[in-house]
Every structure is written in structure tokens, then in C-alpha cells.
């Protein structure tokens, strides 16, 4: 294997890994941007996205690898259903655990977020049991370069790698379009910038918060489903670790900044991949977090974040 092939392969690996981080990080950063709350339950919404989509596949009796027509019908259907369910779930979490605390000191909703995280984890534990869940291999897995293009090469790209990219990248750009180009997106940004003035301009602040929570939850749900389709396993505690990485990505990119979160996700994807390759897998967490600390020392607001005046 030539060194250039190794680099290309690891870049592909980093890209798929980073795409999932980016998708989760976006929800983190959106919610933070609008209510300045680190939603620790976000990772668990991601985990529930996996469980919900798993249940939907089972309910439709789809445990086999799907054919082209089934893929075209069921894959978008289940993706949309999963996103709706996790979106509403995140909405419910906000309504029950965060909204009553809107005017409380900031540490209070943070603690309730940690509490919600534990509750969701235990919900999954009771629902699906403590074991490793096998996610059915519904998405056909084949080797793109050899099976499709008949190229002999040391580089391997599977259909599942394309699935990850094919779902997450449009979601990221779609969200970017929504936030920058639409009326609702403008209202959301206005609320994030200054809720009082936004309210004075006739924007329903609570409704904007609900919209943000819904979109964040839906993105986490989509990431959960993609994670299930890609890795074929899931477990009740997986949200914690994934959430931590995504949170890191959001901070690295500049918390509250959406392109920053996506960038941070990919940067962490690549960094951890290179660390696995050139240092050692057991040091990867240490390497990633050391780089994070270094970046934050020199750019406290993250890669793309800008210093913002404190809200009151």
C-alpha cells in the first residue's frame, strides 16, 4: 500500500467519522446559540434516534437488505419519521425540563439537562435492555471502486460511506440555507442575537426556541439512524460518548456558530483518524483534547466563533 493511498483512505475514514460528529454538533450549537444552554441530553436524543429507527424498521418487518425500490420508499420514510419523533422528543424535553427554568440562573437548567440525559439513558436501558443491539443490515453494502467501477485499487469506499455523506451533507447545507435565507431562519437568528429586541419586533421568542429544539432533535435523530445503518450496533450508553465528541466539535468551531460546528465535527473526525494512524488509538482522546485546549488558548471563541456580548 502506497503512502498516498494510505492518506486517501484515512481521509475517507475521517470524512465519514466527521460527518456524523458534525451532524450532532449542529444541534448542540443551535440550542446553545438560542438559549445559552449546553443541552447534555442532546447525545441521548442521538442514541434514541438509533433506537427509534431500529424499532421502525422492525415494525415494518424490514430485517433484510433492501432492494432498490424498497430503499427509495422506506429509507426516506423512516428517516423522516425518526427525525419527526426525535424532534418532538427534544421539544418535549425543552417544555418539561428547560422552559420552566428559563429565568433561573444558568447553572440550574444545566443540571436539569444532565438529569434529562440520565433519564433518557435509563429509558433506553429499560426499553431495549443492556446488551449490544444489532442494527439490521438494511442498507446494501458493496464496494464502490471494484463492484461498480471495476477499478483495482488499495482504496476501499463502500456504499455505506456514501450513505453517511449523502445524508449528512445535504442536511448540513439544508440547515444552513434555512437559517440564512428564510424568514424563519432570520427570526431564529434575531432571537439568538437579542431575545428582548426580537420580541419587541414581534417575534414569538418561545416559538423560535421550540423550532430550534425541534430542528436540533431532528438532526440528532438523523445522525442516530445513519450511525445505526453504518456501524450496525447501538447501545444505551452510546449517546454520552458521541455527545461529548460533538460538544467538543461545537466548542472547537465556536459554540453558537453553525458553520463552525460543522467544521469542528470534520476537524475532530480527521484529527482522531490521524491520531489512530500515526500515534495510537489509546491516545486518541488525549490527542484530540490537547489540540482542543491549544486552539482554545489562542482562539477562545473557537475557530469560527466571534466574541459576542453577554446576554442578560
Amino acid at each position: 500500500m502506497h503512502w498516498s493511498e494510505l492518506i486517501i483512505q484515512q481521509t475517507i475514514n475521517g470524512l465519514t467519522r466527521g460527518a456524523i460528529f458534525a451532524c450532532i454538533a449542529l444541534g448542540y450549537t443551535m440550542v446553545y446559540g438560542i438559549i445559552e444552554l449546553i443541552n447534555f441530553a442532546h447525545g441521548d436524543i442521538f442514541m434514541l434516534g438509533l433506537m427509534v429507527s431500529l424499532t421502525l424498521f422492525a415494525a415494518l418487518g424490514l430485517a433484510h437488505t433492501l432492494g432498490p425500490w424498497e430503499l427509495l420508499i422506506f429509507m426516506p420514510l423512516i428517516l423522516v419519521l425518526t427525525m419527526l419523533i426525535t424532534g418532538f422528543l427534544n421539544l418535549a424535553v425543552d417544555r418539561i425540563a428547560y422552559r420552566p427554568l428559563r429565568r433561573a440562573p444558568r447553572l440550574v437548567p444545566l443540571i436539569s439537562a444532565i438529569g434529562v440525559s440520565f433519564m433518557l439513558e435509563n429509558l433506553a436501558l429499560v426499553w431495549k435492555g443492556p446488551y449490544v443491539l444489532s442494527y439490521p443490515d438494511v442498507f446494501p453494502s458493496f464496494d464502490i471502486l471494484r463492484d461498480v467501477f471495476h477499478l483495482e485499487s488499495e482504496i476501499y469506499v463502500t456504499s455505506k460511506d456514501l450513505l453517511v455523506i449523502g445524508v449528512t451533507i445535504p442536511l448540513i447545507f439544508g440547515l444552513h440555507f434555512f437559517v440564512t435565507r428564510t424568514f424563519w431562519g432570520k427570526a431564529m437568528r434575531a432571537t439568538a442575537q437579542d431575545p428582548e429586541t426580537a420580541a419587541a419586533m414581534g417575534i414569538d421568542v418561545e416559538r423560535m426556541i421550540m423550532l430550534t429544539c425541534f430542528i436540533g432533535g431532528a438532526l440528532a435523530g438523523a445522525a442516530g439512524m445513519v450511525h445505526g445503518l453504518y456501524y450496525n450496533i447501538g447501545q444505551w450508553w452510546m449517546g454520552y460518548q458521541a455527545g461529548l465528541r460533538a460538544f467538543t466539535a461545537a466548542v472547537l468551531g465556536g459554540i453558537g456558530n453553525m458553520p463552525g460546528a460543522a467544521l469542528g465535527g470534520f476537524v475532530i473526525g480527521f484529527l482522531s483518524t490521524w491520531s489512530d494512524q500515526y500515534i495510537s488509538a489509546r491516545w486518541t482522546n488525549a490527542v484530540v483534547f490537547s489540540i482542543l485546549i491549544l486552539v482554545l488558548v489562542f482562539r477562545p471563541h473557537g475557530l469560527l466563533g466571534e466574541p459576542a456580548p453577554e446576554k442578560h
Binding site: 500500500m1 456501524y231 460518548q241 482522531s272 494512524q277 486518541t284
Partner: peptide
């Protein structure tokens, strides 16, 4: 003899390294 982080399920980078 490498310890992996199983809580982060993606092991492709490590396996790519092993393949090389």
C-alpha cells in the same frame, strides 16, 4: 498490541493502519 476505544465504535482508521 494496541488498546482501542470501543466506546467510539469506528475502527476503520486503526484497521487501515493494520492493513498497511
Amino acid at each position: 498490541n494496541e488498546g482501542i476505544d470501543y466506546k467510539q465504535p469506528d475502527q476503520k482508521p486503526v484497521l487501515t493502519k493494520i492493513r498497511a
